[in-house]
Structure formats: C-alpha cells, structure tokens
C-alpha cells in the first residue's frame, strides 16, 4: 500500500474558524470534504498538504432545504445524501438521477458535492448538470459571502476561483418551471465518463416546440461549459430542432476545446457529442 505523507487534521467548529485555519496554513493547508479525490492527489503527491481542515464536522453544512422554487444543498452532503433525498427526488429528479450514477456506491457514500465542485475534476457529473440548471454556489470567506455560477467557480481543470480562506458552503438550485424539461446523459466505458451532457429545454406546448434551450457539456473538455451559439440553434418546432442537432453538436464541439485523453481522442468526442445531444433532447422531451 502506498502510504500518504504526514498531515494534521483540524476540526473547525464554524465556517469562520475553518476560514481562519486555511488562511493560517496558506499553501500548506487544504479543505478536506470527503477525500475521494483529495486523498488520491495526496497519494500521488500531486498535492502536498501538511494540514487538512475537515469541513464535514461543521454543523449545518450537510442539510438539504427546499422552498417553492429552489433547493439548497449543503456543501458537505454526500452524493448518496442527494441521490436518496426525498426532497430532491420530488423537486429535482434529474439531479437525483445524475447523482445515482456518480462513480460507484463507495464514492457516493463518502464523496461530497462541495468537494466535487471545488476539486474541479474535468470528469465531474454534477458540475455539468448544475451548469445547465443555472445553479449558484454560495461561499463564505474573509471578505464576506459571494454567489458564483458554476462556470465562475470552476475556471480550469482542477482549478477554482475561491480566494484563500474562502469556503463553498451550499449550492442553490432553481427548481424547473412547469414548461421546462431536463436530462443528463453520459457515456462511459471505463472508470470516468468520456462525455457528460445536460439539456434544459423550455417547451410551452408539451414538447411540440422548444422556445429556449440550455446545453452544458463536460468531461470531454477541461471544464464544463455552455455554447450560446449551439443553444440558439435548438429553438423552433421539435422537427426543426432535431434536424439541426448535427450542426449544433459541431458548434458545441468547436466551442469546447475538446481534449485527447485516456477517455478518447478529440475527434471521437466530437462524434459522441452528435450522438448524445440527440439522446439528451429525446430523453428530456420523452422522459425515456
């Protein structure tokens, strides 16, 4: 077994204390929110922290709350907490469904949503769907509280825009309107997805026409993103939209900086985009 380098674990009582601990330890300190990704990075010496701040022990960071038109998920909720939450299953089933297929049962039992987003692993399922749902993450730090869109939080592969000592505390997700249909699809033959694709479609007439579309893609590029040009193409009657899917997929691919990696070559991912954009639209509109 490959041992980890030595570190200390700190247990803050509040977010303010956690923030202070992170500032105190600077480059030598990191947030510990579940460890499913962090511990791998530490094992391979990709990250070297002497101090881990265990934010899971802070009371109140693992609650899930809902109002009529939004859901708030605490940063320390595990993927399993979200997958099994009756509130999320009722109000945002697309999120519960996505969470139920993150990695495997063991990762879902320990990995947290906040850790997943902050770690910004390019193959994150939640980041891509949350971007399409126009979720907002809430943070707290020395200079106060902020609200960031997912594409403001994640600004590169394994990179986030949090300031030193700033913590992600919750994820605020608007519940879909009655006219909105959403789907998340992914394609995976190994341990990490080669493609993640989320659509949110506004259809005022039960699927016959689409008045507005949001599309977010992830895994096949360094961080999840949307394409305004591709979204613009997916408006009109269902027939028109379906006819334009191949072109929209090309636009998505052009905008996305597709990468060659272990999950496949960029031109293969370009092909996948065409296949899975069609499937995502069909799943959103037909529910299958």
């Amino acid at each position: 077994m490959t041992p980890l380098n030595r570190f200390e674990i700190h247990q803050p009582a509040t977010i303010t204390e956690a923030s202070r601990m992170l500032l105190e330890h600077g480059e030598e300190g990191g947030c510990y929110a579940g460890g499913t990704e962090l511990l791998l990075a530490l094992r391979h010496r990709a990250l070297q922290y002497q101090h881990l701040v265990d934010i899971k022990v802070i009371p109140g960071l693992n609650s899930i709350q809902a109002a009529n038109d939004w859901i708030d998920i605490g940063a320390a909720c595990t993927h399993r907490d979200i997958e099994r939450s009756p509130l999320i299953r009722e109000k945002l089933p697309v999120v519960a469904e996505m969470e139920s297929h993150v990695a495997n049962v063991r990762v879902r039992a320990s990995g947290t949503i906040g850790g997943n987003l902050c770690f910004a692993e390019p193959h994150s399922d939640p980041a891509t769907l949350l971007l399409a749902l126009e979720a907002v993450v809430r943070t707290e730090g020395e200079s106060g509280a902020r609200e960031l869109r997912v594409d403001e939080l994640i600004n590169g592969a394994y990179s986030n825009s949090l300031e030193p000592g700033e913590l992600l505390t919750s994820i605020h997700i608007p519940v879909l309107l009655p006219v909105q249909r959403a789907a998340y699809v992914k394609y995976q033959i190994r341990e990490r997805p080669a493609l993640g694709l989320a659509v949110v479609l506004d259809t005022p007439d039960g699927g016959a026409t689409i008045s507005q579309a949001r599309i977010a893609i992830g895994c096949l590029c360094p961080f999840p993103r949307r394409s305004a040009a591709a979204e613009e193409m997916l408006r009109g009657s269902r027939e028109e939209v379906e006819a334009l899917i191949p072109q929209a997929a090309e636009v998505l691919a052009d905008d996305a900086e597709l990468i060659d990696d272990n999950e496949g070559a960029a031109d293969y991912k370009r092909h996948l985009l065409g296949v899975f954009l069609r499937r995502a639209v069909a799943r959103a509109l037909d529910g299958a």
Binding site: I9, G35, T36, L39, R43, N104, V105, R106, A109
Partner: peptide
Amino acid sequence: CEAEVCGACTVLVDGLPVSSCTYLAYE
C-alpha cells in the same frame, strides 16, 4: 487499485460500503 475503482478493499462503515484504501481511519 488504491484508486476507489476496483472495490477489492470494500468494508462497511455504518452499513455503507467505502473504499478502505482511500478512507482515513480517522473517519
């Protein structure tokens, strides 16, 4: 695998499966 992929090291903690290779004993 030491990467939470293979499942060989699975143990149950409070009834839930975890990868004990990448799960701190502290937890």
